[in-house]
Structure formats: C-alpha cells, structure tokens
Design a protein around this nucleic acid. Structure first.
Lengths: 220, 220
DNA sequence: ACAAATTTTTAGAATCACCTAAAAATAACC
DNA sequence: GGTTATTTTTAGGTGATTCTAAAAATTTGT
C-alpha cells in the first residue's frame, strides 16, 4: 500500500465514524485538502484492491480488509503520538504532523516493541483510543461538555477539534486530560458555560464546550 | 526533497568516501539496485537543484548543499539505528531496513530530541560515526583486521560489510563492538588469522578479517 | 415532475520515478 | 590509431498521483 492509499483509508475511516450514513467524494476531498476528481481516481484504485466498496455516484465504505488496514494505520499514528509526548517531551499540539509521517513506517516488529516500551497505552495524548494489534477498537464513553447539564461533573478525556490552536488555548487555560470539571451554570444568551476546573472557575464559550469531551461521573 | 532524491544523495556520498576518484553512473545504479538510465534521469534533476555537480559522461560529485543534505540523512539514519538498538532491543543486524524508512522523516525538532534522549551518541550500532547537527563528520581511526600485523592488538570498532548475514555470523561467534582482539598468527596459505577475542581463540577467514575494523592499540 | 443547482465522474495533461531499447560517447586493446 | 567493448545518455513508454475543465448523474426547489 502506498502512503497515499493509506491516507485515503484513514480519512474514510474517520469520516465514517462521525458523519451520518454514506461518505461522499466531496467530503473526502475536503478532509484531505484535494480535488474531488483526484478522490474519484483513488476510489477506483482502492476498489480494485478490495479495500473499499465503491459504486459510481453511490458513495464509499470500507471493506473488512480496508477497515483493518485503516485501524492498523491509526494504531501506528496514535502510538507514535504517545511516544513523542512521553519519551521526547513534545506537547500535545505538536505531535500530529510528525505522527502523520511516522504512521507510514512499515514494520510490525517496530510497532510491537514501541507498544511495549510505552506500556501498552490505551489512549493517545488527545484522549483518543488506540486500536489493538488485531483491530479491536471501541470508542470510550464520553460526552461533549456542551451537552452536560448544570451540576454535572466529569473528567476531561478528549478533544473533538485537535487543531494546534485549540490545544494551545487549552494549555494556556490549564485545561488538560484527566482533570475534573464541574458545570456550574449555563448562560442562556450565548450558551457559554461557567465551569469549575482544578479549583479555579472559568467561563467557556459554546464553541469551546462543544469541542471538549468528558467522561461523566455517576450521579446518585 | 523526495525520498528518492535523498536516497541518491546518500548513495553518492557513500560511494565518494570509499571509491577512488569520480563516481560513475553505473556504480550508483549498482549501489541502488536500479538501471543506469534511471540514474541519469535523477542526476539531471539533482543537478537542476544544485545538489550535485554533473556533466554528461564526466561523473558526479556532491555540491556543498548536496553533501550537507546527505549528512543530515545519514545522521538521521544512524540516530534511529541507535534508538532501535538501545530503546527497542533490536539487534544490530535488524536495524538497517527500518532505519532506511525512518531516515526520511522530516522534523528537526524530532531529531534533536531523539539525539538528546539517546545521550548524543557519537557512533551507531555498527561503529559508524554519526554526523553532527551542523554537518561535522569525521571517520574514526581504524584499520581492517586483515591488515594488522601478527602480535597487533586493538578494539573492534566497526564492520565494513554490514549485511545481516555477516552480522549474524559475528553474533554467533561472540564478536561484538568494543571487544579486545589480538592477532596471534596468520596462515600463509589462505590468509586466515588466528585471533584471541574475549579469552577465546578463534580462526577467522580472510574474508571475515577484511570486513572487521579495529582501533589499533598503541604499541611501545 | 421538471428546471436549476450541486455533486460526481470523465478526459486530458503534468510530474516523479522507474523501465527497455537504441544511439552516442568514452575507454580498452591489439 | 582504428576497431571493439563498455559506459552513458537519449527516446519513448508505464504507473502513480495529482490537477483543470468539461460532461454526466443526482438532488433540490417549487
């Protein structure tokens, strides 16, 4: 598989686990910052290799093999991200670009050893789950902060938008994975939320709140 | 720079620091396991980018920039090899292929951090020197075992042939970098050598002896 | 359901990196 | 020094990945 093919599979996988229903050529083109015509070309090639199910004008989906391959790449990407943060002291906003390159390195032994070195982590630095060696993958239990009720509590477990700008904003405001967050109040006007985080109080906009995932604590 | 361009620069660099004089199209083709016509194509492209000095039928050499780029790639290759051996417990015969991929990862910060993690190593697992961040590079003082006189002593510091077969042979015979070796006798007949290594005595063929580098100990 | 808007695909071209086969230049030999 | 042999280059072609522009299919709006 070429780097390009791998990138397409990854994109299709990501789109299929958020977007609703079938995946359009345009959506892939946008995600990958390329032209729809290029996408069509690639879809044909991936279809020839039985990595996707593709019928003209009808959208795409991954085949069993395609999904498996996509998960393998995502596994590599996320393990490398953990490596960069844990072993090389990168910050969580710096790792994505480098991992985009490292994810294409081909060596099963390398990934196995890396996994061991890192202690078989289950989540990457952004809180996203790391697929298992045999393609096991399940999303973690989580809820957007913006959807939590007033009085709700939870632990910050991930971000939806993982752009460097957003991550840097979080760092600046001392918001990090693993931190306890409590919803104190919601403003009707703009849906911004008053939250308590690490002893401090903070007012966050709706846009922030709808990009932060919490694992809700059980309420009695 | 593309991966392929990087590989050509590396090949030219390696050829220029063993072969005598100018580097031929054929030599590059052989080194890279490709056809001479492909080499010519690439040399034109590299010449356009001022990475090599190239005149038809006259052979090639690296420009200042070309040499600098080649050293940067070799630096990456060798640092990754150290990483694989030191941190992921690979053996010295396994690391080359993986490092061939890793050497193309583009991130200065990544390499700086890796260098720090590894404690700024000066030599890779095969005893080859690691170029400095700013292109400093000098070969270590060494001599082929086959050229040592009877009675000569030295420390094993590198191999000429670094193929997996040869390296595995060395492992099997407990020959490793850093080990003290003494030449006990030479056989006239086939130039094989009796050596003492780590308490043991061993008879090695000329072919073995002419692929092992020693740093000769000062004799008085 | 039909025209308009949008999405998707085709057609044709460019670039990179490789190939084969043939031509041109250089080197080697008597 | 001229003929061979070798090396190197050109010419032309292939596959992968991208693009633009135009055509075809689908969806939307009324």
């Amino acid at each position: 598989m070429t780097h390009s093919e791998e990138n397409y599979l990854k994109a299709i996988f990501h789109l299929s686990r958020q977007g609703t229903g079938t995946i359009s050529t345009n959506a892939i083109a946008e995600q990958m910052d390329t032209k729809p015509s290029s996408v069509t070309d690639m879809l044909k090639r991936l279809s020839d290799k039985d990595l996707v199910n593709y019928k003209k004008y009808q959208g795409v989906s991954l085949t069993e093999t395609g999904r498996y391959s996509a998960l393998a790449i995502i596994r590599k990407h996320r393990l490398w991200e953990v490596f960069l943060v844990e072993k090389l002291d990168f910050t969580w906003d710096e790792v994505h670009e480098i991992a985009e390159q490292l994810e294409h390195i081909n060596s099963e032994k390398l990934i196995d050893r890396l996994d061991t070195l890192l202690g078989h982590p289950k989540f990457d630095p952004h809180g996203d789950p790391i697929p298992g060696k045999n393609g096991e993958f399940k999303e973690r239990d989580k809820e957007l902060l913006s959807k939590m009720p007033v009085g709700g509590k939870g632990v910050c477990v991930g971000v939806k938008d993982s752009s460097a700008t957003f991550l840097k904003f979080l760092d600046k405001n001392q918001i990090a994975l693993g931190q306890q967050i409590e919803v104190l109040d919601k403003e009707e006007f703009d849906n911004s939320m008053h939250i308590r985080i690490g002893g401090e109080q903070l007012l966050v906009s709706h846009q922030i709140a709808s990009n932060l995932y919490l694992k809700p604590s059980e309420e009695s």
